[in-house]
Design a protein around this nucleic acid. Sequence first.
DNA 1: CATTAATAGTGAAATAATTCACAATGTCAT
DNA 2: ATGACATTGTGAATTATTTCACTATTAATG
Lengths: 215, 215
Amino acid sequence: MPAIPKPTISRLCKIYSLLEELEDKGQLKLSSNEIGRRLGVGSHNIRKDLTYLGETGTTGSGYEIKKLKDQIAESLGFTRKRKACIVGLGKMGTAILSNEMFFSKNFDIIAGFDTNINRLETLKIDIPLYPTYDIPVVVKREKIELALLTLPGETAQNIAEKLIEGGIKGIVNFSPVVLSSPDDKVYITNIDIIDEFRFLSALFTLEKKEADNAG
Amino acid sequence: MPAIPKPTISRLCKIYSLLEELEDKGQLKLSSNEIGRRLGVGSHNIRKDLTYLGETGTTGSGYEIKKLKDQIAESLGFTRKRKACIVGLGKMGTAILSNEMFFSKNFDIIAGFDTNINRLETLKIDIPLYPTYDIPVVVKREKIELALLTLPGETAQNIAEKLIEGGIKGIVNFSPVVLSSPDDKVYITNIDIIDEFRFLSALFTLEKKEADNAG
DNA sequence: CATTAATAGTGAAATAATTCACAATGTCAT
DNA sequence: ATGACATTGTGAATTATTTCACTATTAATG
């Protein structure tokens, strides 16, 4: 069987989120059309994506939510919880920790790291906290697979190397600097809000230019 | 001239960030090789991307940082500051407001919105704050082009519609729900940390499966 | 000033991803 | 049961994107 294309993997992750949401609401089935509408993507595309999972839907009536969710979980490896950590417990880090993370069934944040020891003492968070120089040891010992970086830009690359030393498998980088993987065994995603703003600005600027040229 | 591919636009935004960073450090030139290394992308790819800007580099010695930055700004519309707002001033919203945003030269956050009026009174933030029902009026009046959504999931779609009513051009959605644009005039980017974790998990799961099959 | 080493730019080739068109299969109302 | 309708799955065509291979140009060195 052919490898699953990256864009497809990305959409499957979003579909998984959607299914989780709808399952919680008690919905049982849905069509490729509805998935496409919710994701802002054509239904063709969705059906094609789902072929990588093998037989999934029922002609004429769409997909059974529970079954489809299980199949995605099986294919992409969401069947067990993975251990994660957060590095950088400033306002950003603590905000994420209090909102997003604890609602996921797929990940356990089991450690937090920060350079500022004093800050560690005053935080009221119910996960173990460590200074950043402990990163390699703790990551290795606890078999942590994923890390979320919420740091000021300068330190991020240095910290990333400590994580890699500990054997981390994936990093989501929220720090305002582009990290790249020194060796290829570690996957890195960079999230930068300013860049997203720029991207959107560029889209509507270019759209306008094109319209001007046409007219 | 042909339209610039989306992946290229996305990389150009990252290159722009990088150039800004290096310019601040006083560096004057750099090569496609170095850009590629920093972004985790092949140098071919970078050179190809830059051809969409017209003549840019100097054979044998690379790109002049200031010039290249100006050319990207010109092509993608970063030559003037754009007005932006933030909707949702919980921990996440205020954290972003205090870290990231004010450091950008390309965007001005000129308004904040929240449903909780009491919260608005207690926040110590130096931008005007409004209740969410004022969104359409304020966005239109102030000609706000971009919005950042940091809300609990349920309300996000509803708020997005208010923004669109006001004539917003782009939305970066941080809320844990996939928003899609009802009409095609508004560009939306969804950022979801859990989805990024899932994506990375999927990558190294699939890599492992492939390796197992091969061995 | 000649020689060597870097490096950009680019058409062409290769690869990847999306879209299409339609057959096959199921559902639902009557 | 039957007809009308909805929906999936998929090979083929199309489109988009990346990679390659090579030329031309410049910088740096002795």
